[in-house]
Amino acid sequence: MSPPSAKAMVEVSGVTQRFGTTTALSDVSLTIASGEFVTLIGPSGCGKSTLLRLVADLLTPTEGTVHVAGKTARAAREAQDYGIAFQQAGLLEWRTVLRNVELPLELHGVGARERRARAEELLEVVGLADVADKRPSQLSGGMQQRVAIARALAAKPALLLMDEPFGALDEMTRERLQDELLSIRAREGTTVLLVTHSVSEAAYLSDRVVVMSPRPGRIAAVVDVDLPLRATGTPTDVRESPEFFAATTVVREALRAPARVASP
């Protein structure tokens, strides 16, 4: 049991997760620094969601420890240190869009006026201010996912956890939401841990890509991504830059040959 380090937002050490006879994760260690954007990528069934759920304290590890924001995962969850967006939007269909975004604040006892103001502000950020009073069923899948992201951000969490949040969306919507996510993250300084199965999404968004291999789930490679155009260029500049292509190539190779440790 190592003590959590001061600057780390997430510290997973020596975690093994078994479900009956299945070993979903085997001896996984991962440290995410405060402010970092890390993606988990790997073939389906390699334990990406399991790792995310361990960080969220939706699962308790069979072995090993998980610390978030310098606390145990449980204490961090209870302190609402993280916000989470699942693969399904998972909105409450009986609530309006606005009241869905308010939900985490409501559950933590924030006053009605304050949570309404925050929810309106977030809907503005994700470009859905005009549908605040609609019900989720009246929204497209992409819009629902944006509401779910706004909800995850409602309590101004230091850490944002996302499990394939753009998985079900078309390419256009997906790219727009990726850019929205980057600008939210830049503005709020949020640490992000995002699960994806898209190589280009991982390369485009992250500071580090964690490549996982299946049976049992392990970390096969960690790829550092540095896209200088992120600070100065447009999204299109970044997506067309040689550094972006180089990063996708390295991630793709790490996925194909998971045994080899790669660096760009």
């Binding site: 989470i84 939900l103 559950l107």
Partner: peptide, 13 residues
Amino acid sequence: APVHADLMRACAA
């Protein structure tokens, strides 16, 4: 729904 149960736990409800 499982996703709602997860959400409630994540929000420490």
